[in-house]
Design a protein around this nucleic acid. Structure first.
Length: 291
DNA sequence: ACCGCACCCTGAGCGC
DNA sequence: TGCGCTCAGGGTGCGG
């Protein structure tokens, strides 16, 4: 669920907890699909390093260290990156929460899903990476090492122009929704913001990409930028597992026009929002407003 | 080359 | 109350 806005909100809030701080200890879970770099290597190579800048590329966070190596994180579906001082009822699963006394339920304690825990020499707040579903990724790149994952990303969604989208969509037969979800075309766009942008553009998500007009591409690109910028302003969309690094929920879920609103009224025309499946993903649109 | 689809994983929510 | 089922979907990789 974390898409570009949620990752950007995470970056803005977690950067102060990384930049300029030196790693004292690294705790990890056992080797799993989450670790593209083995946990033993992570522990060895991160210890004693100081974080410089925290950047974002698409849905990836890229933290540069003082030896020019880079720690790359992807939140997947259920990944959470946050401070040990965060307070939120979402930091634990419903099941593990209910076993605790009420006053303990909002405080986080590392559990079996806490794959990475960074402790710092200054003894301040720790930085934690938790992901129950294990769709997230942790990767450490050497100083000049390249990553195919990062290299194949397309245009940043916040920089997308109608012209670029028009060019990328020519002769493509897949649904426009699927094209928007393709990270090698538009980096950072996922299920929620693709549906929302297509609603703003008045374009039905099932339309073949190659049939979208230049004018419609302008509206889609404009729509993506608008929904994403607004979401970043409101702290992201806290649908399912996303929380801010400080535990705060986002507010964008309250501004959804179509996503997860099947059967509800369209705010614009009053018609019923419909749900279809495109490329294994649930897709929402208003039949009256989107042609 | 392009596209659709199965798969990785676990928790929430639902029906019985 | 509790079990078993379905669903959620970002990204990868394979088969047609």
């Amino acid at each position: 669920m974390p898409e570009l806005p949620e990752v950007e909100v995470t970056r803005l809030r977690i950067a102060p907890l990384l930049e300029g701080r030196t790693v004292a200890e690294v705790h990890t879970t056992r080797r799993s699909l989450v670790f593209l770099t083995p946990p033993t290597t992570l522990r060895r190579r991160l210890s004693g390093r100081t974080f410089r800048a925290l950047a974002r590329r698409g849905k990836y966070l890229v933290a540069t260290l003082d030896d020019a190596s880079r720690l790359v994180l992807h939140l997947g579906m259920t990944g959470q990156l946050f401070s040990s001082e965060a307070v939120s009822p979402r930091l634990l699963s419903v099941a593990s929460r209910s076993a605790l006394a009420p006053e303990e339920q909002r405080r986080f304690r590392p559990d079996l899903h806490t794959h990475l825990r960074l402790c710092f020499e200054d003894g301040g707040p720790e930085v934690l990476f938790r992901d129950a579903r294990k769709f997230g990724k942790v990767l450490l790149l050497g100083p000049s090492e390249r990553s195919e994952r990062l290299d194949r990303l397309g245009i940043e969604a916040l920089d997308l122009s109608g012209e670029a989208l028009f060019r990328a969509s020519r002769r493509r037969k897949l649904a426009i929704k699927s094209l928007l979800m393709d990270q090698s075309v538009v980096a950072g766009s996922g299920n929620i913001y693709s549906d929302e942008a297509l609603f703003l553009a008045g374009v039905r998500p099932t339309r073949r990409a190659g049939r979208i007009t230049r004018r419609e591409c302008d509206r889609i690109a404009e729509g993506i930028q608008r929904v994403m910028r607004r979401s970043i302003e409101t702290g992201g969309a806290s649908i399912s597992d996303f929380i801010g690094p400080d535990g705060r929920d986002g507010g964008y879920q309250d501004e959804r026009r179509v996503y997860a609103r099947e059967g509800e009224r369209c705010h614009r025309c009053g018609g019923r929002i419909r749900r279809v499946v495109i490329g294994q993903r649930s897709t929402h649109f208003c039949p009256g407003c989107q042609r």
